[in-house]
Design a protein around this nucleic acid. Structure first.
Length: 606
RNA sequence: GCCCCGGUAGUGUAGCGGCCUAUCAUGAAGCCCUGUCGAGGCUUCGACUCGGGUUCAAAUCCCGACCGGGGCGCCA
């Protein structure tokens, strides 16, 4: 093995009895029994018990050894040498793979000492995890914790599997620049001043999007990259200013080729990582259906509780609340909460009224006026308001929702967008409250059939639904005002209700790309100013191409059940984008600014 | 920019107007202990984020700042 050790701390077992071994690692726990000393020595592979026994130990210099051992503290880095031996009967530790043996210390050396640690590195009975700011400040200690170490290993393995698959499929990894051209499009850029070109700036890449398209023009055909991306927008639990995408692009393909390539990759990853068969192809859902049934463009389809619009059925029922909503152009949707899912039930097997009241309060907190409900009984629908709904309307509702006796029908009524959003939230809330996700596996789904454009409520103009490079379906954008109805060859990969990937076919025809830019409100001069290089590249024989970018941080965090992607990133930033471990960002010397021809306008307060 | 939640020994917590010179655990320092393993026993150390205010009395209530987290906006 290495020079400092003969074995690592997770490998010695009964098969090694009698061997002389040298271990190196951190002292995680030590126990002094008044002469007999125990040390749990841990490295990245595990931990092994080393014991010093003044009676049994055979050492060249017992006094010196005792002196060394008695001055060892927690998290000291030491090596110990000794013979692997059986533990005394009845003192084995079944929880530890090395728990049947111990190393009888003959020699020990302190490689480095450690100050008292600011928080526990060892696993604790109750969660004694400190606040996250402390974990980030001492990230190197946090990473020493077993959980964080295994998170990093998981991530590494996942990326490694993806790489292996893509390499076998003929992809090559190409690195694209980190110092790139700033653009008005998209998120806020991180800017880097140019020293050689004073007054000019690079931007850190928000994604390798345009570079990978130019790689396609360059004949690469199958590109991938584990790419760092930068966006200077405010953070969330699943958002960091710098994050990692598994980025891919392919030439001479159509959308189906890309989707099945991605599916194949995940199937391979699942097989390698979990030894599980991942069913492919992934289900697909159209954007408009997703919005109508799940109230979101990132649906979690692992449980039912889908919304059914009933606007058409109740439009003539003299129920004032619905009438008021409908007269303003609103909608009514319904969720059938199956009786079998309901936990808090009245003695007659129906939902507790208290539970319904809590849901009504919750609906109000979501910006809804309230929530209308009906119980399904063997005699039909029942509630305080069914009298406003003629028998044939009730019948139609039951048919559409397939309500069975014991079910509870929940109605949301209001402006379309509000209703769908609240309905989506209601689904998630019910699933959480009722534990519907317990024991559920994971589920990929493709979100497809998205428009090219959407209205910008601020300006009234059109903006890209995804980005301006999406190739229109059928290479056609309706003319004139109808262009807003144009559909794009784009797709999102949704995993358990979170968007973890997004991609599209790209415009390889420069005229089509110009047309899209034009619809987005750019005149020829602006196009030239912002995207001349792209348009020109497309004019030199750009092949049909498309691809996808997938969020590595988010996928890892979800697979590991982490609440935040920070737990799968070695050195993440806090909510204010500070790196607590090294204190970035900092002020810089005046001289450095001068060299860049920069003047700092921020207040000098210290 | 806005909204919500939180801030008590190194760490995690209890306390939520007077029982607080503040609980418990862990840690650190020291002592005891020859088979533990999240060892055990004894001793010691160590904290109410800051600034105003209300009150006879504030860790506790109010206001503001600061710090941290979650969210909205933002993220083509």
């Amino acid at each position: 093995m290495e020079m400092l050790r003969t074995h690592h701390c997770g490998e010695l077992t009964k098969g090694d009895l009698g061997k002389r071994a040298t271990l190196a690692g951190w002292v995680r726990f030590y126990r002094d029994h008044g002469g007999v000393l125990f040390y749990d020595i841990a490295d990245s592979h595990g931990s092994t018990q080393a014991v010093f026994d003044p009676v049994a130990t055979n050492s060249e210099d017992l006094d010196r050894l005792e002196k060394v051992l008695n001055n060892i503290g927690r998290e000291y880095v030491i090596t110990v040498t000794g013979v692997v031996r059986d533990r005394v009967e009845g003192t084995t530790d079944a929880r530890n793979p090395t728990g049947e043996i111990e190393v009888l210390i003959e020699d020990a050396k302190v490689l480095n000492r450690s100050k008292p640690i600011p928080f526990e590195v060892a696993e604790q009975k109750n969660s004694m995890l400190p606040g996250e700011d402390l974990r980030l400040k001492y990230r190197y200690l946090d990473l020493r914790r077993r959980e964080m170490g295994s998170n990093l290993r998981f991530r590494s393995k996942l990326i490694s599997c993806a790489r292996r698959y893509l390499e076998t499929q003929g992809f090559i990894e190409v690195e694209t620049p980190m110092l790139t051209r700033s653009s008005r499009e998209g998120a806020r850029d991180f800017l880097v001043p140019s020293r050689n070109m004073p007054g000019q700036f690079y931007a850190l890449p928000q994604s390798p999007q345009l570079y990978k398209q130019m790689l396609m023009v360059g004949g690469v055909e199958r590109y991938y990259q584990v790419a760092r991306c930068f966006r200077d927008e405010d953070s969330r639990a699943d958002r960091q200013p710098e994050f990692t995408q598994l980025d891919m692009e392919m030439s001479f393909v159509e959308m189906e080729d890309i989707l099945s390539m991605v599916e194949g990759m995940y199937a391979y990853v699942w097989k390698e990582m979990f030894d599980e068969h991942l069913p492919t192809p992934f289900p697909r859902i159209e954007l408009k259906d997703s919005l109508a049934r799940y109230g979101t463009d990132a649906p979690d389809v692992r449980f039912g509780l889908e919304m059914e619009e009933v606007t058409d059925l109740v439009k003539d029922a003299p129920y004032e609340i619905f009438q008021r909503v409908l007269s303003k152009g609103g909608m009514v949707t319904c969720i059938d909460l199956k009786g079998s899912l309901i936990k808090e039930q009245d003695t007659d097997g129906s939902v507790g009224r208290k539970q319904v009241d809590r849901l009504i309060d919750w609906a109000k907190s979501q910006g809804m006026g309230g929530l209308t409900w009906m119980r399904m009984t063997p005699d039909g629908l029942s509630s305080n308001i069914v009298k406003y709904f003629p028998e044939e309307v009730r019948q139609a509702i039951v048919e559409r929702t397939d309500a069975q006796p014991g079910d509870l029908l929940l109605y949301l009524a209001g402006p379309r967008e509000t209703v769908l959003r609240a309905g989506g939230q209601l689904r998630l809330k019910l699933a959480k409250d009722l534990g519907l996700l317990e024991g559920k596996g994971h589920q990929f789904v493709w979100l497809v059939s998205c428009p090219l454009f959407q209205k910008d409520p601020a300006t009234g103009g059109l903006t890209s639904f995804h980005h301006p490079f999406v190739r229109p379906v059928g290479d056609v954008i309706p003319e004139g005002k109808d262009c807003a109805n144009g559909m794009g060859h784009s797709y999102d990969l949704v995993f358990d209700g979170s968007e973890i990937g997004s991609g599209s076919m790209r415009n390889h025809d420069p005229e089509m790309q110009r047309k899209v830019f034009g619809i987005l409100g750019m005149d020829e001069a602006t196009m030239q100013k912002e995207f001349d290089f792209l348009l020109e590249a497309l004019e030199f024989g750009a092949p049909p191409h498309g691809g996808v970018g997938m969020g590595v941080d988010r996928l890892c965090a979800m697979l590991l059940g982490c609440e935040s992607i920070r737990d799968v990133i070695a050195f993440p930033k806090n909510k204010k984008f500070q790196s607590l471990v090294d204190g970035a960002p900092t002020k810089v010397e005046e001289a450095k600014l001068s060299e860049l021809q920069l003047l700092c306008l921020a207040d000098e307060d210290d």
